[in-house]
Amino acid sequence: MRNGCTTSPANWTSRMASSGSTADAYEETLHLEFKTLSHPGGELKRDDKKLIAKAVTGLANAEGGVLVIGIATARVDGIDVAQEKRLVKQLSRTTNLVRAALPEMLSPQNRKMEVFGIEEKYDEGFIVVVVPTSADRPHYSNVHHQYFRRGSDGTRLMEHGEVRELMFAAREGKLELVGRVLPGLPIVAPGSVCFGIRYALALKNSGPVPARAAYIRIAQQGWSQNLGIEVRFSANEHLGYYTTREDLIHVQDERQFAWIDTGLDFRRTGALNLSDAIRAVESQGWQVFSMMPIAQMKPLGMQVADVNIRVSGLFGAENAVSKEFELLIDKTELFRQFCEVNSMSA
């Protein structure tokens, strides 16, 4: 039975070192590659540099992984499988030679790569190169003057389109529109169960690099800008909310752009406090409260219509793809977020 391997060398070295052969037949994977040198060890020939450069470039341009030098493979059912150990002699010296050569093999360098030896007997064993995932892709093999990428079926030459895609992806942020209720309970009057709510629009960066000069363009009126946001009309008469080139949204960070006032009126529940009002909604249904800005709330008993938040437009950044959006917040969604922000059951 063949065994898959992970990027952790400990998973296979401990088992292989304790056995006298490679009878378990470990498979190469997307994250694991086996190689042998062209000689027993103690030097690093040009063919060895080409072999190592292709392997580490391929891993760096994919999802990272581990290169193990000192294991020969055979092709079984279309998969390279470990066949026998060919231990590297003069392990310490050869490991140092590989470590010294790596920085010149890739452009740009992958500075987080690690190289170490695993000794099986005195100064003989395996050389392990750990290649982490890289935000600086694509990496170019200076030895081959080509780009390589590791796949499930081995390491291959990259096509022009793939190289271009990685070049642009590495420099782009990935923005998501986030709408949320802001904390705070502005009550109309003491003992009242009418609550003013401020609803905000923000952009979150889930990409690999900071997003620069982000913006939101909104088709509807009534939104106010946050501090540090510039507002101006865009060509289609939408209001644009802009940051400057110096204003970055860092990875996994958010930037708030605009907000609008709304509110929830629980007077029809008959409750005198928020906790009782929420319980009344849960038991009686959505018809016992209404949604609208505080300024539009009518005297109790008058017929009212909910004022939902409808907002649409476009968002993006200097280094992030622009996207259209359309958002509807009705009273059920506003109620849910309101309870969540204020740590109440809903």
Results as ranks from 00 to 15, higher is better:
residue 167 M to F: 13
residue 181 V to W: 02
residue 212 R to C: 11
residue 186 P to W: 05
residue 151 G to Q: 08
residue 173 G to W: 02
residue 198 R to A: 10
residue 186 P to K: 13
residue 168 F to A: 08
residue 184 G to L: 05
residue 152 S to M: 14
residue 211 A to H: 02
residue 148 F to Y: 12
residue 170 A to M: 09
residue 156 R to P: 01
residue 163 V to G: 02
residue 196 G to A: 12
residue 208 P to M: 05
residue 184 G to S: 06
residue 149 R to P: 00
residue 202 A to H: 06
residue 201 L to T: 00
residue 150 R to N: 08
residue 195 F to L: 05
residue 200 A to Q: 13
residue 172 E to G: 05
residue 201 L to I: 12
residue 192 S to C: 08
residue 172 E to H: 13
residue 212 R to P: 00
residue 168 F to W: 12
residue 165 E to S: 06
residue 186 P to E: 15
residue 196 G to F: 02
residue 179 G to H: 11
residue 171 R to Y: 08
residue 198 R to K: 14
residue 213 A to E: 08
residue 153 D to M: 12
residue 165 E to N: 07
residue 213 A to G: 13
residue 189 A to W: 08
residue 189 A to N: 14
residue 210 P to Q: 07
residue 181 V to P: 01
residue 160 H to E: 12
residue 148 F to L: 03
residue 175 L to I: 03
residue 196 G to E: 12
residue 151 G to L: 06
residue 197 I to Q: 06
residue 148 F to C: 03
residue 211 A to N: 06
residue 199 Y to D: 00
residue 190 P to T: 10
residue 173 G to S: 06
residue 193 V to Y: 01
residue 154 G to Y: 04
residue 188 V to M: 12
residue 149 R to K: 14
residue 190 P to V: 09
residue 147 Y to W: 13
residue 196 G to C: 07
residue 210 P to I: 02
residue 209 V to F: 02
residue 183 P to Y: 07
residue 162 E to T: 00
residue 177 L to W: 07
residue 204 K to R: 15
residue 170 A to Y: 03
residue 178 V to M: 08
residue 210 P to R: 03
residue 164 R to N: 09
residue 149 R to D: 00
residue 196 G to K: 06
residue 147 Y to L: 03
residue 161 G to C: 04
residue 169 A to T: 02
residue 147 Y to D: 07
residue 207 G to C: 04
residue 208 P to V: 10
residue 208 P to C: 10
residue 201 L to E: 05
residue 157 L to Q: 10
residue 189 A to Y: 13
residue 183 P to M: 06
residue 178 V to E: 10
residue 179 G to T: 15
residue 153 D to Q: 15
residue 183 P to F: 06
residue 194 C to A: 15
residue 163 V to I: 15
residue 210 P to C: 08
residue 182 L to Q: 15
residue 175 L to D: 04
residue 176 E to F: 11
residue 209 V to A: 10
residue 210 P to M: 06
residue 209 V to T: 14
residue 149 R to L: 00
residue 183 P to R: 09
residue 174 K to S: 11
residue 159 E to Q: 14
residue 200 A to P: 04
residue 156 R to S: 09
residue 151 G to H: 12
residue 189 A to C: 07
residue 199 Y to A: 01
residue 181 V to Y: 02
residue 199 Y to R: 03
residue 169 A to N: 06
residue 173 G to Y: 04
residue 159 E to W: 10
residue 212 R to E: 11
residue 163 V to K: 02
residue 168 F to P: 00
residue 147 Y to Q: 03
residue 209 V to H: 05
residue 162 E to I: 01
residue 187 I to Q: 13
residue 149 R to A: 05
residue 197 I to G: 04
residue 201 L to H: 07
residue 211 A to C: 06
residue 199 Y to E: 05
residue 152 S to K: 15
residue 156 R to F: 12
residue 160 H to W: 14
residue 196 G to M: 12
residue 169 A to I: 03
residue 205 N to D: 08
residue 156 R to Q: 10
residue 211 A to F: 08
residue 204 K to I: 04
residue 195 F to W: 10
residue 187 I to M: 11
residue 207 G to S: 08
residue 188 V to R: 13
residue 206 S to D: 13
residue 203 L to D: 03
residue 180 R to T: 09
residue 178 V to I: 14
residue 199 Y to S: 08
residue 201 L to N: 01
residue 186 P to I: 09
